[in-house]
Every structure is written in structure tokens, then in C-alpha cells.
Amino acid sequence: MSNAPTLFTFFSGAGFLDLGFEDSGYKVSFVNEYHKPFMDTYIHSRRALQHPEPEFGYHLEDISVFTEEPNKDELSKMVRACRARNELIGFIGGPPCPDFSVGGKNRGSEGENGKLTATYVTLICQQQPDFFVFENVKGLWRTKKHREFFEEMKAMLREHGYSTTERLIDAMEYGVPQQRERIILIGFKNETLKNMNIPVENGTSLDDVFPWLNRIKYTKEQLQSIPFPTQDPFQEDGTLGKPVGVPDELTVEYWFEKNDVYQHPNANLYFQPRAGLAKFLVIPEGDDSKKSYKRLHRWRYSPTAAYGNNEVHLHPYKARRLSVSEALAIQSLPKAYTLPPDITLSNAFKTVGNGVPYLASRGIAETILDFLQ
């Protein structure tokens, strides 16, 4: 199959995951998202980047409508239309994860968000794409109850003709200036694998044959040995030399410059403190030890870009919180990626924090292509 794979994307958010795949040669044909501000951002950013509109459009609704008639049949028709053109079809998505995260509700598969994981798996089993990508928090592995649910989902996929592989990735491995661990589960239809002459027995793991390390720039061991700085006294607009042995691309300062964050269209979007600035002036550069009011270090990576639950992240050398343009840079997005000017601050930060770091999604997309070829 010479054509680049065609994607149906779910829980698409503002399209960070989709963009990484698209810039690797995939074609986005169908987009589904439930939260209107995310969808508005997705559409705005596509136009800003001059990407073509998805062939089957944008679908602003709960994913569960596609598991039932008449929408189930409509989706099947779209999938069949791609098949008729001999295209490989992929479903990609990261169901909302608060129910599996320590910072969230931890309700697991019983929570409203947890149920969406099962819905996504049901959809894959019904529509039988050639491959799928499922992204979620590491909490899905770490708790016994969540792990059992995850294993049940994989068993269901195996019963419906899929072989899978999974890995706990860290975005930094792909050159993202942010420590962000996520589970990536990838599955391929056994029939598709057979057509590609990849020998597979039903229900076996693909862990030994899937080239997970192909696109990784830094191994976990290498990352541990980098002499990142810890803390320096806060100096408003002060200068600080970069330590020897720290890769540029893993520092927030490199990305702030690369994306020209102070001239970016979203540069002035940041929360103003209700109280005085006193607190902003005393936290050292690089002190991210507390749950909130973490100050980034310019010559280090950022902690996970999650800005909900009072997780306030401060600029390394300015007496303020991070701006949206800086948060986008920490997510390793291209400079041309922008959020709509009329988006609310809370939706803007929620949008950025929920996305998969762009370079990590590109790395995963390219790894799948390596495997398919």
C-alpha cells in the first residue's frame, strides 16, 4: 500500500497528536472532539497552519454516538470509502485521563472519563481499523484496579483480531523540553500484519518486533546522566550562562527563543495574580518542589505541562506565570501553531495541558511508519 495511512482521530483536543502524525505524512480524514473550545482551537490552528480540511469533517459530539446506529453505520461508510481506495486506516486518540491519574479523581473505569476508554476500545473492535494508537497516563499501569481494567481492554482487542505493543514513554526521549510520561498502546490487525509478511500468532505481543527505540533521541539512561542545574536565585530579567553538557533542545530557554515566545500571537495570554507579586519574587529559579508555584529553570526541562488543579508554573526569570505562547513552546509545537485570540485563559491552558507533546507524537507516528515499511 503506497498511500500514507488515513487517520480517524478521536478525543482530538486541539490536534497536537494529529499534527505530529500529519507532519509525518499521514492524512487526517475525520476528527471527533466533545469540548467545543478544543474543537474551535483545532479548526483555527489547522487554518493558521494552512492544512487541508479533513475529508469527512469535524464531529463535535460524544464518541459513544459512533458505537450506535445510525452514526455507527455512517462511520462504517467512511471507513469503507477509504478501504476502497486501498488506504491503510488508523484510529488514534487519548481518552481523557483524570480517572486514572493520581492528581485526578482516581475513579478508574467507573468514572465518566474512565468509561470513555472502554468506548474507544469498543469503537476499534466494531470498525476494525488496520491499526490504532491509544495514549493515557501511567496511572493506568500503576494501580492494581486500573491495571486489571487495562488488561481487560487488551484482551478484548485480542479477541477482535489485534496484536498489541505498549511502552511507557517520556516526552524528553523525543527531544521535548518537558518531563511527561505516558502509556502508548499500539495495535495492528493480525490480517494486516499477515499481508505485510509479519509473522504473528493470534494474541501475541509485538513488543519484540516493534521498533520503539528507532526514533528516540535520548535513552532514559542518557537523560539521567545530563547535568541539569537545580536552583539559582531568582533575578528578574537576570542573565545566567548555560551549564556545559546540557543539550539545548531539552531546555525551556532554547524553545522560548526558537518559538519567539515574546512576539508570538499568544504572548500576552497569562493569568494575572489576584494578590501582590511578593510570592513571585521569592521562589528561586528551578524550584519546582511544591505542587503549585513551580518556577521553571531556563536551562532545564519543564515538569509536566499541566495547569489545572492550582498547578501554577512560573516563568524562570520574569515575575509572572507562564504565558500560552511559552506553554505551547514547552509542548514543542511549531512556532506557527496558535490558539484563537478570543479563547478564555482557562480554556487556553486546559487545551495546551491536555495535548500530547508534538515531537513525541511525531516520534510515535514515524516509528509506526518504520514498522509498516
Results as ranks from 00 to 15, higher is better:
F10C: 08
S12K: 04
L17Y: 03
S24M: 06
V31Q: 02
N32V: 10
P37V: 07
E55A: 07
Y58P: 11
K72T: 10
K72W: 00
S76T: 07
C82G: 06
L88W: 07
K105Y: 10
N106H: 11
E110T: 15
E112Y: 04
E112I: 14
L123T: 02
V133T: 12
N136G: 07
W141N: 12
K145F: 11
K145T: 14
E148S: 10
G161Q: 02
S163H: 10
L168D: 05
L193V: 08
M196N: 01
E201I: 10
D207C: 01
N214V: 05
I216S: 05
K217L: 13
K217V: 04
E221N: 10
S225R: 12
F228D: 02
D232H: 10
D237P: 00
G241T: 13
G245Y: 08
V246T: 05
E249W: 04
K258D: 06
D260L: 06
D260H: 12
Y262D: 14
N268K: 13
Q272F: 01
V282D: 01
I283H: 10
D288M: 12
D288W: 01
K290C: 09
K290E: 12
Y307C: 02
Y307F: 15
H315K: 06
Q331A: 08
Y337I: 03
P340Q: 04
P341Q: 08
F349R: 06
P357W: 03
I368G: 05
F371I: 06
